[in-house]
Nucleic acid binder design. Sequence first.
DNA 1: ATGGACAATGAAAGCGATTGCATGATTCTG
DNA 2: CAGAATCATGCAATCGCTTTCATTGTCCAT
Lengths: 329, 329
Amino acid sequence: MSKPTIYSIAQRCGVSAATVSRAFNRPELVSAPVRERITAAARELGYQPSSAARGLVTGRAEMIGLIVPDITNPFFPLLVRAIQRTAERMGSSVMLVDAEESAAAEVRHVAQLRSRVDGVIVASPRSSSAALREAARGLPCVLLNRPLRDLPSVLCDNTSALFDAGEHLHKHGHRSFALLAGPSASWAAARRSQAIRRWARGRGVELVELGPFRATFKGGRQAGAALLGTAATAAFAFDDLTACGVLAELAGRGVAVPGERSVVGCDDVLLARTVTPSLTTVTAPMDDLGATAVQVLTRQIEAPGGAPEHIRLPGVFVARDSTGPRSGP
Amino acid sequence: MSKPTIYSIAQRCGVSAATVSRAFNRPELVSAPVRERITAAARELGYQPSSAARGLVTGRAEMIGLIVPDITNPFFPLLVRAIQRTAERMGSSVMLVDAEESAAAEVRHVAQLRSRVDGVIVASPRSSSAALREAARGLPCVLLNRPLRDLPSVLCDNTSALFDAGEHLHKHGHRSFALLAGPSASWAAARRSQAIRRWARGRGVELVELGPFRATFKGGRQAGAALLGTAATAAFAFDDLTACGVLAELAGRGVAVPGERSVVGCDDVLLARTVTPSLTTVTAPMDDLGATAVQVLTRQIEAPGGAPEHIRLPGVFVARDSTGPRSGP
DNA sequence: ATGGACAATGAAAGCGATTGCATGATTCTG
DNA sequence: CAGAATCATGCAATCGCTTTCATTGTCCAT
């Protein structure tokens, strides 16, 4: 009465184990009647192939690892979903690992995953390039939102969308802006800041830089407080979570949005649509991002050693209610 | 130059594979010098034991599955963390699966996980008892926040904390309450509603029931709108996410909290501390909940067939800024 | 009839680890 | 100093599956 194996089934059906295996993996090689007997017996016995045994012989775990720096950040759940869906469609499962915001943990987890997965997707804004490269040596790996020359990566590029955001605000009469910078170690943060700076310079408008702030709600509140110390009428928050914090802080101090200040976020997290006022932001193409990452990883797994792909997906600007005409003098 | 195995190492060190295996698993059985040579060689070659091979012979995957109904709900990330931490300490990895709010998916995923994990933790408010029981047949399984006689479960019981919440509001002069009910299929929702009803009856205060509302921010806004249609001065929201929605809706309509209405949430999600006003709520002992679930599951795995444990951890009431003295007449 | 092509199946060799048993070397005991 | 006990190690079976190669039987063209 132990777990059924292909042998139990084989015996029960009077065929060899090989035939049972084939009945599942290459059904066209097995005659219809036999195949049916086998599947019937399998169902009856509640047979489940042992993935360990299969993995041992095929060398594939049918599993990919996903490392995120902070699962409590609302940016990730959507990504996780997208990745999970795509992976499932390709016959793989996903092992999610939360690095709890520690660079060391990110790298450590890559090492731990090595033996259990076919490859990993790493959303690792923190760890050093060298550590990352080293950790990924010999393991198919795709970087998310962080570029590294010799490792494949899938990035969301918001540069042009942020330009659009700037133009949108400019059109509404804003001339003085604040940049609420994100974590200094984060590639995304650096890139966004840079895009905004470039735009401001090109437009010839005033830009005061504040921060860096942590990418949390609380960080956003601090950013909001800092913003009030300036004359800027519009602010670019590093991301939506930060922006929500800013909104909360402003609301708490009785500052009207967009009446007195306009705020734009980034990422288009679920919350962005639902807060009041709803957030003007830049939507990251989460589904694409996740799906692409899985596909790139799959390619990497099937043909290791190819030139690393670098894919860049553009974000798109969405105007909502947290931005509006400049008020005052 | 293929992946190093215990054989490569054995050969390199002039010992047998068995010795290499022992050097890692039962080091006390191997003489010190040999052990060191082996570990040195292993490090040098970058050896990683194949978990498939080990799993095949030991019959253990060192992996547990975790099924959550909706990873975007901020309740779960903290739980996931706690579970992951505990599992790691016990030498297991966690496979997280998001059921995307579908009962069918919950059950389907349990089936898929069967062959890859030693057991599963299921946070499944939705699927039917029968389906759940069937899906878990022969697979160690622990239910989270949902009781079922014949399956072990770990629950967070907020009954007494909700009583405390009621008393807190009563002390502040509130006499007319609203219950903003959560999803009708959810055990937690039913239980909370019941606790609140009981308290109100016992206290002899007025209680109007609204809902059910979805456990999302948007659902909360609807609840907030509904609340304004009543004369209740204090409201019990199903959970914090709902409560945040209520706050947003009230703020949007210029209703002061706690000036005009008091709101209490439940779960003490991260956001609860950071919104304005910060949320009076009932904190679920997430870390305990997660750790306990893993421990119960581990016991279940090691000694299947024991009587199912049912563990209940109490939530505790925390007063913050979303509740205050009753205003008006 | 005869041989070849083709289809359906079986036998058996691994995949990389763990582990019970056997063996040889040391040390202990009386 | 003989034999027992102990220690370190090797041998070989095993876990459940996939896959190559060989085998058997059918059928068709010659």
